[in-house]
Design a protein around this nucleic acid. Sequence first.
DNA 1: AGCATATACTTGCAAGCTCAAGCATTAATC
DNA 2: GATTAATGCTTGAGCTTGCAAGTATATGCT
Lengths: 139, 139
Amino acid sequence: MNDSNPALDLVLQSALLWSTMVKKADQQLSVHGISFSEFCILHRLFQAPQQRMSRIELANSVGLSASGITRLLQPMEKIHLVEKEQNARDARVSLVKLSDTGLQIYQEANQSCAFFASQFTSPLTARQLETLAELLARL
Amino acid sequence: MNDSNPALDLVLQSALLWSTMVKKADQQLSVHGISFSEFCILHRLFQAPQQRMSRIELANSVGLSASGITRLLQPMEKIHLVEKEQNARDARVSLVKLSDTGLQIYQEANQSCAFFASQFTSPLTARQLETLAELLARL
DNA sequence: AGCATATACTTGCAAGCTCAAGCATTAATC
DNA sequence: GATTAATGCTTGAGCTTGCAAGTATATGCT
């Protein structure tokens, strides 16, 4: 009757884990006035060469749709966390660039988020953390 | 400059991974007319003693808020996947019970979801899957 | 050059979820 | 026994996101 299925169990287990994790991260980041999604954006931009990316690249890198990016970026532009730039070669793409204030907010938020992350993963040893990351990277 | 932080990387990596995973699972389940959230509900009910739970328990077990459960369950009651029952001891709680048709849909959907899950985890060996589940269980 | 197709967005609409507030019921305290 | 607090749930308002459709630009084919 109860044909336990490890793969299915894993999927359900992690879905629950992930949803609670994001909620907690959101809470931690709220003091900086940004959401977890916004932090992901800033993080990707920070990592990008010249801290600038196309919106589509950005969408893929954080797992959102193109329209999701458009709407998420609108308020971020308004408060000048990011800037809109045009691509000289291709007039379709509009680049997103991390602004100075965006960089500052990112660095502050990064502290909070890093603290949260280390707290969240504290039940694991460094070695286990590494193993976990490795296994997840295969999926 | 690039002070790489394993814990933070893990959090960001898994956020992306799970969001794409849930989207794919939703797609797989759409042929049964239910969402991933709804499948989680059915799954928990199926596992529950007498296939019946209070709404708050259900909310916690799938990582939703109480109001989320209320709204998610409304259409499910309408198409008779679940039934509402009263608790004799406590008039506040209303129990949710898996119906016969709900059970049937669950079993069909379970096949799809199990297939998806095994496909999703196919890059991992059974041993690695076990390790992964074990590590996630600690978080 | 001209037309079809693909790409990079943006926008209208709808779904799914949360938070805050409210209601009903139960438990706890005096 | 009455009052206060806690619990279980529902509802209104609002946020975030996705999908489908639309626009603008680029690319490829002939």
